[in-house]
Design a binder for these strands. Structure first.
Lengths: 193, 193
DNA sequence: TCTGGAAGTTACAGACCGGTAACACCCTAG
DNA sequence: CTAGGGTGTTACCGGTCTGTAACTTCCAGA
């Protein structure tokens, strides 16, 4: 993967892409800027010409990851135009596919765990992005004609968040193996009301 | 709190207690052994006389934390002897009380996020302890007379795990605010079947 | 009172961390 | 051809990290 990134693209893009990958795999505090620049086929000075600090790089990585997630959501709309319920089911399926055994979970949630300082600049960004995702899921539920859309969206959020973190503690055979069953059951029961 | 720990008890106990507290608050990679020993009112050499390494200390802390959690479970049995359903409700209440705004979530889950190396010695301990807790919740659900006890227990697990991590990303006003409502609703609906 | 082990103190090794300075290079736009 | 900006290279700073060595102090039990 690193090699793929190294092929000709701008150093800044390579750094951003490589950093996302390495932060995801090894954690934010588990990887240094030297390792990132080396894997990106560049050097530390170039990194610091494009990013103010490691914290700044972290924030840009989180924004980029969130943008990719938003693109996946857009794909649901493209695949099932107007059919919000189908989009909700597509979300469940897509999200469950990402619950693989070697999954490292949600980058934003992991970052919140690692960056325990309450005034860390990344924390407000994490909160913003997570709130935006929540809002999007709520309106998807609402537009799908579900009563108590907020409660369903929040329940699905917690289930997913829990599945992603449970995967990392006990693996894929743990409680997260039942995620699809739980989510589909919830949607059905909320629709039945 | 540190001062309370410093008062006369054995250095090993003070180190263990202080390390649990500091790992919980600042994360494992966010605190060094020097800081731990200083807060525990002792010194680094004494720490390394009682623990082989920082990794060893981490593992002992996780075991101690799990033992405290097990003691809380035992209290449910003492408060509602024989009444498993009451114990399940007590679990929901107790667990929700721990979802405070400044909560840092589950130490084991957080450790799994921080210690991304798949062969880290703490990972197998985390898996063991989490599986034991899962087993305990499953049998509580089963003995409470709930059909599909495994599914209910796993769903409650994921909800709780999700609530604890969501709290750290978006705070107490996020989806985790609805935890009790979700959990009680689930229990009721599983019992109704 | 003597003694042995636990605990404290100081200093250090070796590695890694984020971040910067100074300078050489290359490639493209004019 | 030339000028200049983006990039690469090397060396360095000060700090922090885990872990160890050598030595001193303290205290409880015989």
């Amino acid at each position: 993967m690193a090699d793929g990134v190294v092929e000709r693209s701008r150093p800044r893009d390579r750094i951003l892409e490589t950093a996302q990958d390495m932060f995801h795999k090894h954690g934010i505090k588990g990887v240094g800027v030297d390792a990132i620049t080396e894997a990106a086929g560049t050097n530390k000075m170039t990194l610091y010409r494009h990013f103010e600090s490691k914290d700044d790089l972290i924030i840009e990585c989180l924004r980029a990851t969130a943008a990719k997630a938003a693109a996946i959501w857009d794909a649901f709309e493209a695949e099932h135009p107007g059919d919000k319920l189908a989009q909700l089911h597509a979300w469940v399926r897509k999200v469950s596919e990402m619950l693989t055994a070697d999954s490292r979970g949600c980058d934003m949630a992991n970052a919140a765990v690692e960056l325990s300082e309450t005034d860390h600049p990344a924390r407000r960004v994490i909160k913003e992005l997570k709130e935006a995702q929540r809002e999007r899921l709520v309106s998807l539920c609402r537009d799908a004609g579900v009563g108590q859309a907020e409660l369903l969206a929040d329940t699905l959020s917690l289930l997913l968040e829990g599945a992603r973190v449970s995967m990392q503690s006990v693996g894929a055979e743990g409680p997260s193996a039942q995620f699809v069953r739980m989510a589909e059951g919830l949607i059905a029961s909320f629709r039945a009301r």
